[in-house]
Design a protein around this nucleic acid. Structure first.
Lengths: 234, 234
DNA sequence: AAGTGGTCTAGACCACATA
DNA sequence: ATGTGGTCTAGACCACTTC
């Protein structure tokens, strides 16, 4: 593991173990340098990581402080690793409704940047949070990258499998959000009424080399759906 | 202006001027170092900025590539500078409905981290995009930080005024998203029906020293509301 | 004035992709 | 094997906050 990653983890663990709150001060740069026995740049790199993650904020001339959002039970829209990778992880489970290999629609092919003759895995799942219906998910994986899938994998974490089982490196993702009304089928899956509110999140996931490998649409139960986003200044 | 900021701007301008698309390759590190006459670290810092912003992605051993999301007309949920600061800026206008000084409710006081005796500016606005109703906004500003406001400022950009007029440095923000149904009043403002879907976005904006200065709730018209989020791997 | 974080440099060495 | 990005160092100097 890289030094700066290791140090970032240690600092984050320190914050959690000591239950530090928003605004609490961390040791100064010089101390951290000595404590971890590395150069200033390496500490700075660690702190940049934590700042980007929304764990701390730095004030020039003053110090390094803990950043905490106050509300619990919200799902982060910024983790592009699915839900299971969140720090404050939720008890998310899945039920697989459909799993097959097919030719993509034009929309799917476009989003995966392939042509319509190439095979994709199609997966439809319901996802539960605290045993309540959270969302319906429909995903398409480029089969030339995600070469194999089965129901067992899809019931567990597909992303863990892609990373650990297939050895693919997951990079960045683009998400598009829409608000609309539920249709009959969606309402049935989510245990709501037709015409009730919903949020659709379409996401294109890319490998770290920029290749799209997954296009997914999640339709959320508006009662369970609470999200948060931490933004940093530019 | 800092070197790495300047370079980042130049590179971004280069991408726009040449209308580069997703996956197009940029000059390699060595070339950029020579071209801008700076050290490797400075170029890297610029590229990190652009990567965080979702403008490029880097592949070790391969190169630096342009990152573009393909869909137009979506509002970024990551800009914590309001709408007006977006690169692909929209014609956003505002109408001020209410503007007064008052004592905050407990909820507002909590979110601004003040007590209920301290004054806040209360602003209620309707915001339009392409001359259509985008959202209703209700904001509360800590009056000890935002010392003055008037209708003219609130019709324009309040954030520009806070930064440029008051000389405050805007830092990070925490946003919380909910989906629900419109009530009578909201429906009227947005020109929709009671019970139609809505998205509420509550945001706490902080100065760069960590102090909250603005708590706002935006209620979006579900027909106009389209958002996007670019996430980077961890 | 002292303390603290931020920028920038030159260079050594490492890890990954491509051919 | 070569090219390309990533990590890490030691140190000089700068900018902001606090006292």
């Amino acid at each position: 593991m890289l030094k700066y990653q290791h140090i970032a983890n240690e600092i984050e663990k320190y914050i959690q173990d000591h239950a530090l709150q928003q605004g609490d001060k961390l040791p100064v740069l010089d101390e951290l340098m000595i404590q971890f026995g590395v150069s200033k740049s390496t500490i700075i790199k660690s702190l940049e990581l934590l700042e980007e993650k929304g764990v701390i904020f730095q004030v020039r001339g003053s110090g390094i402080f803990v950043r905490r959002h106050r509300r619990k039970g919200y799902i982060s829209l910024l983790s592009n690793q699915g839900f299971t990778r969140d720090l404050e992880s939720f008890p998310i489970t899945s039920k697989v409704l459909e799993l097959d290999i097919r030719k993509p629609s034009r929309e799917v092919a476009q989003n995966l940047n392939i042509d319509q003759e190439q095979d994709v895995y199609h997966v439809k799942r319901i996802r539960y949070i605290y045993e309540q219906t959270l969302c319906v998910e429909e995903s398409y994986y480029n089969k030339s990258i995600v070469t194999y899938l089965n129901t067992e994998i899809a019931t567990d974490s597909i992303f863990d499998y892609i990373r650990d089982g297939l050895g693919q490196k997951i990079g960045f993702s683009d998400s598009y959000l829409h608000i609309d009304k539920l249709n009959e089928e969606e309402a049935q899956y989510l245990g709501l009424q037709k015409g009730d509110p919903k949020m659709d999140v379409e996401t294109i996931f890319h490998l770290s080399n920029g290749q799209p490998f997954d296009f997914s649409r999640l339709t959320y139960n508006y009662i369970q759906a609470q999200f948060f986003i931490q933004a940093n200044g530019q």
